[in-house]
Simulated scan of single mutants.
Amino acid sequence: MPTTADSSPANATTTAADSGPLAAVLAPATTSAALHAVDLATGAETGLHADRPVVIASVVKILFALEFARQADAGQLDPADRVRVTAPDRLGGTGTAGCLDDVELSLRDLAAFMMTVSDNTAADLLCDRLGLANVRSLVAELGLAGTLVTGSPRTVVEAMAEDLGGRLAEASAEDLARTRAYRPGSTNTSTPRDVTSLLSAIWSDRAGSAAACAQTRALMSRQADWHRIAAGFDDDVLVSAKSGTLPGLRNEAAVVEFPDGSRYAVAVFTRLGTPYRRRPDVDAAIGRAARLAIDELRGQ
C-alpha cells in the first residue's frame, strides 16, 4: 500500500524506511538516498526520507525554467532577446559552457540548452536576466518551505573551488563533503517532497499561468539524458525530467506519464562514497527505485 513518506532528518539513525524495498534498491550503489513519489491525480504518496534536506545541484534549473516562462508570459522579458556568450562566461562542460568561440543566442535558446543538456553557462546567464530575488520569491510563492536557492551554477562552483583552495581536481569524497556545495542549507537545497510539490504545481497549472506551466513542461520533456528515471520505464511512457550531478552526487526529478493518462511526480537524490563521474550502476538504481515507487502507487 502507498505510505506517507519518511520524514527523518539528514542525520537520523536507521529507521524502518532504511530497510524497506526502496532502500534495498538504492543502498548497494549509494551511501545515502532520499526519494518521494506522488500520484498527481489522487495525492497518494510513497518515499524514503522525503523531508530530508538534500543538495539538488542542477535540479534547481526547473525553478529557473519556470521563472523564465512566467516572466516571458507576463511580458517582463522578450524570449527572443539576444545574449552573447563570451570566454569569461564559460564554465566548461556541455552546450555553450564548453564552446571554444563566442556564440550569440536568444533567451529562449539559453533556457532550452539549460534544460536539454544542463548547460551551466546558459543557466548562469539566464539567472542573471531573471534576477535571483525573483527566483527566491517564486519559491516563497509556491510554499516550498524546505527549498533554498543560493545562486546559479557559477556560484556553486566558485564556492567549491574556494573551500578546496583550488584543488578541485584532486578532491576526495571526504574533501567535497566539507565544502558548502555539498552541505544542505549552504547551497541550492530542497527536499524530495518539495521537488514533487513543485512538479505537481507545474503539471496542474498552479505554478503560474497555463501557458507558463506548459512551456516549462515542454522544456523538461526535452532533456537529452535518459539514463536515470527514464531508464526504468518502457518507451510508451513519457518522462519529463531534470537531472542534477556533482562529483559524488546524482539526482533526478521527473513527471512520469503513462498511456492510460495517469501521472506521477518522482524525485530521487543520492550521495555516493566516491567522486567518480561514471557511475552507471547509480543511474540504473535511480531508474529502478523510481519504477518501484510508482509501481507501488499503481498497485502493481
Rank of each mutant, 00 (worst) to 15 (best):
A133R: 11
D102F: 05
S152E: 11
D109R: 13
Q76S: 14
P53R: 10
V149M: 14
I62M: 14
E104V: 08
A57T: 03
Q71A: 12
F64M: 05
L100S: 11
R82Y: 07
D89E: 10
V157T: 12
A44W: 12
A161M: 08
A159N: 15
M115K: 08
S106G: 11
D78P: 10
G75N: 07
G92Y: 07
G93A: 12
T116I: 13
L125Q: 01
D109E: 11
L126F: 00
D89R: 03
V139G: 00
R52F: 03
V149S: 02
K61C: 03
V139R: 04
R84C: 03
Q71K: 11
R90A: 10
R70V: 07
V54F: 06
A133G: 09
E158C: 09
L164V: 09
T42E: 07
E104A: 12
E158Y: 13
V156S: 12
A122W: 02
L144V: 10
P88Q: 04
R154Y: 02
L164H: 02
R70Q: 12
A133K: 10
T42P: 06
T42W: 14
T121E: 07
H49M: 13
I62N: 11
L132V: 09
L110E: 01
D51L: 06
D89C: 05
G92Q: 05
P153K: 04
L164S: 15
A50L: 03
L91W: 04
S58F: 04
A50Q: 03
T150M: 13
L142E: 04
L148G: 15
F68E: 00
L40F: 07
A123E: 00
T155N: 10
L63F: 13
M160E: 15
Q71F: 14
Q76G: 15
L66Q: 06
K61W: 02
P153G: 08
P153Q: 00
V157L: 15
G98N: 05
D109Q: 12
G47D: 00
R108D: 15
A41E: 12
L66S: 04
D128A: 10
L40A: 14
D73L: 01
A72Y: 01
D89Y: 07
D109K: 09
E158K: 04
D73K: 04
D119Q: 01
D78I: 05
R154V: 06
A50M: 06
A112T: 11
G93K: 10
C99H: 09
S118V: 10
R52Q: 13
V55K: 08
A133H: 13
V156L: 15
A122F: 01
L48K: 01
E158I: 06
A74M: 06
C127I: 01
L138I: 06
L142N: 09
